[in-house]
Amino acid sequence: MRRYPPLLLVCLLATACIADPTARATPVPAAPSTGALASPAPASPSPPAPSGPRLVSVPTGESAALESPLYAAPRTSARCEMPAIKPDHWGSMKRYLGSASACLDRVWTREFAAVRVFYSPPRRRYVRHHTRDPQCGTMPAKGASGTYCPLTSTYYILVPRDVIGPWGAAWAAQLTAHEYGHHVQYMTNILDYADFRSESASKRAIDLDSRRLELQAECLSGVALKAARGGLPPLTRFQDLYTGRLPAQWVRDHGRPSTQRRWFERGWRSGRPGSCDTWSGPEREVS
């Protein structure tokens, strides 16, 4: 789904923050009239015939969320040197985002390989203005800084001018890792499960599943950023992103800032995808 603008920059981006709760990205349809965004995500691509160890089948339905083989993946690491972001220099920000994405490719390719699950990295686009995806339409979604489209396996990062500088490094890395986390959910059929449940659920149930989905992506971002060795900001810089207030609807479908921070820290401190099972616990853990 979409990702909120940086809470660290609430004062600078207040209008964007207010607009965020209206956006929906990875299909969690309320009605079929929403077009491409309401289309169910296709099944994960069939793996080619393996030349090495036999690949493990990825479960579907509830088992995809509760018994994912990815939960058994070990802690991993990848050496990722990050370029500097120069103030008001779009090219340097694009290079930083590209380096972050390439680093995440290495992290998640290793995690999936460790549990013998087929994996293909997502596409990515970094933009200064909204653009169009051939399947999901306007991207990122209106009011959003980041959106993942499972129909084209592409995430989009919209970069405001205010964050183009060294101070925007944590925001850029975490936003990228969060949207990448939705691709991980897609590759493990968790995204399909959430979409299926939303088709006949109440608004309250849809919001609950949305929180489980978003908080899991938040936790997975912590796992991946912990694994990325090199020039990434320290934990304290990422923790600063979870200050400020969110509109009520944003809390209902994404969780409180304190809850988001707790799941991010859980992933960071454990370094293991298995710590990110938001689907098994009680509702109070994803409030």
Rank of each mutant, 00 (worst) to 15 (best):
M1N: 11
R3F: 03
Y4W: 12
P6S: 10
V10T: 10
I18F: 14
I18E: 11
T22S: 15
T22H: 13
A23R: 03
T26R: 06
P29V: 06
A30T: 11
A30S: 11
S33F: 14
T34S: 12
S39E: 14
P40F: 03
P42Q: 08
A43L: 13
S46C: 01
P48R: 06
P50Y: 10
G52N: 11
G52C: 05
R54H: 08
E62L: 13
S63D: 15
E67C: 08
L70H: 02
E81I: 01
E81L: 13
M82K: 01
P83H: 07
I85T: 11
I85H: 01
K86M: 10
H89W: 09
S92G: 07
M93G: 05
G98Y: 03
A100G: 04
S101Y: 09
C103Q: 06
C103W: 07
L104M: 10
R106D: 13
R110Y: 00
A113P: 12
V115R: 10
V117K: 07
P122E: 08
R123I: 00
V127D: 09
H129M: 08
P134N: 04
P134R: 12
C136K: 09
C136M: 11
G143F: 09
A144V: 06
S145H: 09
S145R: 04
T147N: 05
L151Q: 14
S153Q: 15
P160E: 09
P166G: 05
W167E: 14
A170T: 08
T176A: 15
A177G: 02
G181N: 03
V184W: 04
M187S: 12
M187H: 03
M187C: 07
L191F: 09
D195R: 05
F196K: 14
K203M: 11
S210D: 12
E214Q: 02
A217Y: 00
G222Y: 04
G231C: 02
L232V: 05
P233A: 03
Q239W: 06
T243H: 13
T243N: 09
R245I: 05
A248I: 09
W250K: 07
D253K: 12
D253V: 05
T259K: 10
Q260E: 03
R261P: 00
R262E: 11
E265H: 00
R269G: 04
G274K: 10
S275R: 10
C276T: 06
V286F: 08
